[in-house]
Amino acid sequence: MSSISARRLAKELAEIHSEGCPVGINLVKADDFTCWWFTIEVMGESLYQDEKFTLQFRFDSGYPISSPAVQFVVTDGKQAPIHPHVYSNGHICASILGNEWSPVLSVVAVCVTLQSMLASCKEKQRPVDNDRYIRHAPDNPKKTQFHYDDDTV
């Protein structure tokens, strides 16, 4: 792992420890600079009231130039939220995790974006191609070429 990504992640982690996460987001584990876990819950009135989800970030040495691999954890009894852009295997179809990723974004910024994505959901449903996608989905969601069609959510 190159020192640039490690140093950048170390700095982000230090900021999380010193300033804390935004409301509804909590760091679960960040033992190394390859995989971090966060819990995320939607504050206020929403379809996901009293539900808590776990987000997994995987970083490669290209971070922050290349995006982190972000998905919901669906093992150990954890569930991915039922959302038109979240597949049942935890993969998220969000442009900022793909071609709209920018190195100025941070881990916390991604969490906040996903939190607001859940908060603005109008109807709890899986993506239309959910079954087809999870049959062939790669392990790393970054290998999927998502087609971003909906920018309302």
Binding site: R8, K11, P103, V104
Partner: peptide, 10 residues
């Protein structure tokens, strides 16, 4: 903070 690069945060 104005002297920090947004990408590497240094």
């Amino acid at each position: 903070p104005n002297l920090l690069c947004c990408i590497c945060r240094m």
